[in-house]
């Protein structure tokens, strides 16, 4: 029997020793070779969302404020889709951990976006 590439054997060994308790979600699962229909649909979905936004902008179908609100909604949908489908959040077996990281990501994103808006408002007294 061949010793598997290290990350398989090590991770399994650790889980068995109970050293990594609380991290079972990070155990790799090999040998599941179902056809990834979810990802295929997710991919198609993300393309649809992208092109919907593009067409809305190019064809000027909506007044500016409505347009911005719609494409922002589409963007949030896109982000949710990416996280749900391609980052495998729903398949996780250790939701608590995932939530910590997801929270951190949201914090970073909100920080970057929020501060960028603040900066670009040009409430300038000096320029």
């Amino acid at each position: 029997m061949a010793e598997k590439l290290q990350f398989q054997s090590e991770a399994t060994a650790r889980a068995h020793e109970g050293e990594d308790e609380g991290l079972p979600s990070l155990l790799p699962r090999f040998g599941e070779e179902k056809f990834p229909w979810i990802q295929v649909w997710g991919y198609i979905g993300s393309l649809v969302l992208t092109f919907a936004a593009l067409i809305l902008v190019i064809d000027h179908v909506l007044p500016p404020v409505a347009l911005l609100s719609v494409i922002l909604t589409l963007a949030v949908g896109q982000a949710a889709l990416q996280i749900g489908v391609f980052m495998h959040v729903r398949e996780s077996r250790g939701l608590a951990w995932q939530m910590v990281f997801l929270g951190l990501v949201l914090l970073m994103a909100a920080g970057m976006v929020g501060m960028s808006i603040w900066i670009m408002l040009f409430k300038s007294g000096v320029s």
Binding site: M108, G111, M112, M115, I119, M120, L121, F122, K123, S124, G125, V126, S127
Partner: peptide, 15 residues
């Protein structure tokens, strides 16, 4: 992550 504006202070985003 919280320092990037120091590269464009002179853009004048405000005090």
């Amino acid at each position: 992550y919280g320092t990037w504006v120091h590269h464009f202070f002179t853009m004048g985003a405000g005090p």
